[in-house]
Design a protein around this nucleic acid. Structure first.
Length: 224
DNA sequence: TACATGATGCCCT
DNA sequence: GGGCATCATGTAG
């Protein structure tokens, strides 16, 4: 079997999301990513977590997007082919993970904001330097974009530009068996000042791992 | 629960 | 040199 055929076989076995999944408007990709599973393989224990909260960033027309001011060395991945990891460093402390959307040459992406740990919880806790004493503490592992990135040991040096649709990558996203389409809540994005009113944040309704203030986590967010 | 604030470093102007 | 798609910790209620 050829190398390409092997990769195709592995992609199918893993239920890996293909590049075509990401080759669409972020407003379509975002809600469809909810319920999918982020996987980190690093040779020891695979880390897996179900995606429960994302935000769409639209490219040059979206003033809150890193791509708004045009293509630079920092945001280059957003303008590249779909399905690649865009990792940036923020507030001097944290990395955040995104995936590029839309075809090569057109910017757009999805920010991963929160996930629900499934596997490799020990490795996540170690990466976060947290002791999980009760189920409640699991929230501290992956609820919030900085926490999620740290739990998965994601850094710009290691992961920026990585192809999340390649089974040879140590970071990818798979479809999930036995998880029916979640009820999706749409709200404004968190932590931005420009284009703050746009409803581009998507969460699984009432999932306890969703981050942010309570009114943006529950089934009926107030519109005040 | 809700807010305020300090820590911290990279990128772009 | 300023801004920033955040987190942890503190205080008050």
């Amino acid at each position: 079997m050829s190398h390409e055929a092997n990769i195709a076989r592995d992609r199918k076995q893993l239920k890996l999301l293909p590049a075509s999944f990401y080759d669409r408007d972020p407003r379509i990709v975002g809600p469809e990513l909810l319920g999918k599973v982020l996987v980190r393989r690093d040779g020891r224990v695979a880390r897996k977590a179900r995606i429960v909260e994302v935000e769409a960033y639209l490219g040059t027309d979206d003033l809150a997007a890193h791509s708004a001011a045009g293509r630079t060395a920092r945001n280059d991945v957003l303008f590249g082919p779909p399905g690649r990891a865009y990792v940036y460093f923020i507030y001097g402390n944290h990395y955040c993970l995104n995936v590029s959307c839309l075809p090569d040459g057109i910017a757009g992406g999805i920010l991963f904001r929160a996930a629900e740990p499934i596997d490799g919880i020990e490795a996540m806790a170690q990466a976060r330097d947290i002791i999980v004493k009760s189920p409640r503490d699991l929230r501290l592992l992956t609820s919030g974009p900085g926490r999620l990135a740290e739990a998965f040991a994601i850094t710009r040096a290691r992961d920026n530009g990585k192809d999340l649709t390649n089974p040879r990558s140590d970071l990818f996203i798979i479809a999930s068996d036995g998880f029916h389409t979640p009820r999706v809540l749409t709200t404004a994005r968190i932590g931005i000042t420009k284009a703050a009113a746009l409803p581009l944040r998507y969460v699984i309704a009432d999932n306890p791992f969703v981050s942010g203030p309570a009114r943006l986590r529950t089934a009926q967010p107030s519109n005040s």
